[in-house]
Design a protein around this nucleic acid. Structure first.
Length: 190
DNA sequence: GTTAAGATCTGCT
DNA sequence: GCAGATCTTAACG
């Protein structure tokens, strides 16, 4: 990925990442999708952010250089995938909540369960990680390189409308509108 | 060493 | 629409 990072500001990055491609290579093949839903987690004034209470072993990747992966395990069953943003050591990230499946659909369905509806393959943080076979071994991975990487979409629709809402499933800082979605897209988590 | 809470999903009512 | 499953992490004693 030679494209310049879409701004060091985390909120700006969350907006700009909408419409980007996400690629994942494994021995089974390549899967890809378009990011349609993100959430920003800030280091200051954001109690919902894992980094708000300082650096720990779990969130260490969040303090790494921008454009690396921060992946963590939640609720005993699911992973969540974040793109680290902001300068190194700041502790900010963008959560990728949903993607629109594009390539390797059969592989995604195999991972998510046969007969899984297309719009149900990656419409949520946990589902997305299942469909893309993302787990903690990729924590801290450089997202410019294989086997997990991002690429700017050259065919971004100019009329794409972006909407911001409060974040989902977060009990702290509900008043902040830090979730960004492609308005009207049918692959959103909700 | 023990306990409480969590950036979720699925299945059942 | 709602409650339960399930386990890792971090805070506390």
């Amino acid at each position: 990925m030679n494209e310049k990072m879409p701004g060091y500001d985390t909120v700006e990055a969350a907006r700009n990442l909408l419409g980007w491609y996400l690629y994942r290579e494994t021995g089974e093949g390549l899967v890809s999708g378009i990011i349609v839903e993100t959430e920003a987690y800030l280091s200051e004034g954001d109690a919902a952010c894992h980094a708000s209470r300082g650096k720990t072993k779990r969130n260490a990747a969040m303090f790494g250089p921008p454009f690396t992966a921060y992946i963590y395990f939640i609720y005993g069953n699911y992973y969540c995938f974040n793109v680290v943003t902001g300068p190194e050591n700041r502790g900010e990230a963008v959560l990728i909540r949903a993607v629109e499946p594009v390539g390797g659909l059969d592989l995604m369905q195999k991972r998510r369960g046969a007969g899984c509806a297309l719009k149900n393959l990656a419409s949520g943080p946990g589902k997305l990680c299942q469909a893309f076979a993302i787990d903690n071994t990729l924590n801290g991975h450089d997202l410019c390189r294989s086997p997990l990487y991002l690429a700017k979409n050259p065919d971004l629709p100019l009329n794409m409308s972006i909407k911001s809402t409060p974040r989902i499933g977060v009990s702290a800082a509900k008043n902040k509108h830090l979730r960004f979605v492609i308005n009207g897209n049918q692959f959103l988590s909700r």
